[in-house]
Design a protein around this nucleic acid. Structure first.
Lengths: 334, 334
DNA sequence: TTGTATGCGTTATCAT
DNA sequence: ATGATAACGCATACAA
């Protein structure tokens, strides 16, 4: 790597003159600026990023800690984060907690040594279940700002970006009740212990309560044989005439199992799931989804952390990114 | 952030003594070591990573440039990369090219300024189609090593990690011919222009040629209405008795469309697709897949780049990570 | 207009 | 056993 020193030597100039010339300082003559620039491009000079970081005490790098990236929701959020980061000339250091508290703690610990200017985090399942917050507090005490998204921790005071979990499921359920006259709506959940899961269940309950309907909940926990459980439930409860799934898998599973049971979709059973862009192609009939704007969530998280880092008057805020009910073939036409 | 200087001041010691104490140098008395360590832990001292990087001229950071991360294959590879990086105490800077040459060039350019010690790259679709290699050459000329994986560029001499694309599809096709006595096997492709796509098609062709069977190829290109095209083809060609899909979507689509056409799976039509861990749950009957060991590919890529960076006698190599044919419900039992 | 000196935080070499 | 000094590459305040 070419350095200022090398350029200076070759040009018989001082390091600072070269530096100023490259930064287009008005103190330098057009003449030398030209000489400097020419040699610099010729030798493909690029200012050493590490040295700049040390000097400025800013890395322009954000630590991104995700539970997983194989879940398409988090993958799409990461995409949004990266898009916005590129636009604003930031880099991202990515760590995956694999849903484990210990790995999450370790990642935060390791990056809290000047590697990053701040964090974007969705906490691990384990961290959320155990309500562990010390590691996050520690980061904040270290004067590194955090933006939490999706998996949010109420006890921590920092910027947050969340989906309207309650409202989106409430409205989807209400749609099934009001527009499709469904009487026995089953909620399928495999994320009941997460903050977002709880809110989604509440949204469902509010809607059925309001309509005076009983609630039917199939909680799969971390079950391995999801298909069998869904099949069995639908088989044992033929009165179920609609399904709301609050994750991105079980809605499609419900469609497949219902077809196996010769249920007609959407005539005798409507299905609404959570999903993202590719999801709909993978089921037949195409599944209606509550579409989380995952990309927008990522962008918003990045915007927020940069705002915190650069704006003098930044105030802690919680942003809500609305979801969109995308009706397709697994529900009747309104 | 606490610095050595601050510790030194508080302890009435010199900076260098403190530094040595923390690094457990034998020149320092047990007595002062203890004092230093105690204050350090009390003030939560961590050596500034940026300063260490500047001093050592090593970042222990790898730039990872992927076409996308919403494709579950790349997501899983990223997971593998991250796992191995964590194990070896490396960080990863992630950039997404969004399949565009220009963004890929920009990412490499931006990180080639001391930010990383090397790169792991799967080239963008556009780069591969245009056979553009200059940006990669430039990186290598900059003395930054590269590991290419999956989307490989033959003209570039560097470490590579690839799947046995030819062999895996050859064997899957051969399985359908030999064990299931299929006579008219359709290959569905939407990645024909990629290096991996070409190899997979070759594998298919070799197998059908060898058996004296005609080849049937449905090339979807970047078509938007994949479902319709698959439906139409299967409808117009009822003699097709097996499908091999060389991506992770169209196999499931084929199953769904075949069911729509009242074809019995696997009795009258066998389907084998490409896939990863969650894929199988999303179809009914469960799809048989050529399972790319994406996680292993990521781990291998990371191991290779670290080997290049740390071993004196590292030689350029191409590693092949074998795939595994995972038979499920969309093929008959052998 | 150009050059000198200083410091970011760390480590390593060389005194004391 | 401890401390002073220099260096990594860059940017800037201050001289000249």
């Amino acid at each position: 790597m070419t350095t200022l020193k090398e350029l200076a030597k070759l040009l018989n100039l001082s390091v600072s003159t070269v530096s100023k010339a490259l930064n287009d300082s008005h103190e330098i003559s057009a003449q030398t600026k030209k000489r400097v620039h020419e040699l610099a491009t010729k030798l493909n000079y690029k200012p050493n990023r590490i040295a700049q970081q040390l000097k400025s005490n800013k890395t322009k790098t954000i630590g991104v800690v995700l539970p997983t990236v194989t879940n398409p929701f988090f993958a799409e959020v990461l995409h949004g984060i990266e898009t916005e980061a590129t636009k604003k000339d930031y880099d991202i250091l990515v760590c995956l907690s694999d849903e484990h508290l210990e790995k999450e703690e370790r990642s935060l610990e390791l990056l809290s040594n000047g590697s990053v200017d701040g964090f974007i985090i969705a906490v691990a399942r384990e961290s959320q279940v155990k309500s562990e917050t010390q590691h996050l507090e520690k980061v904040l005490n270290n004067d590194l700002p955090i933006v939490l998204f999706d998996r949010v921790v109420d006890a921590i005071i920092c910027d947050k970006v969340v989906v309207d979990d309650f409202l989106s499921v409430y409205e989807a359920t209400k749609y099934l009740i009001d527009k499709e006259q469904r009487q026995a709506i089953l909620l399928i959940s495999n994320i009941e212990e997460l903050s977002v899961g709880k809110l989604r269940v509440k949204g469902y309950k509010a809607a059925v309560d309001e309509a005076g309907q009983p609630s039917y909940i199939l909680n799969l926990g971390q079950s391995t044989d999801v298909e069998k459980e869904v099949f069995t439930y639908l088989n044992n409860n033929p009165s179920i005439d609609a399904v709301v799934s609050i994750d991105h898998i079980t809605g499609i599973v419900a469609i497949n199992m219902a077809k196996k049971l010769k249920r007609e979709i959407p005539k005798s059973l409507s299905v609404i799931g959570f999903g993202y862009d590719h999801t709909q192609m993978l089921s037949s009939p195409k599944i209606s989804i509550i579409h989380q704007k995952a990309h927008a969530i990522g962008e918003m998280a990045m915007k927020t952390i940069i705002s915190n880092l650069t704006l003098e008057n930044h105030k802690v805020e919680t942003s809500i990114v609305p979801s969109e009910l995308k009706l397709s073939e697994s529900t009747k036409k309104a």
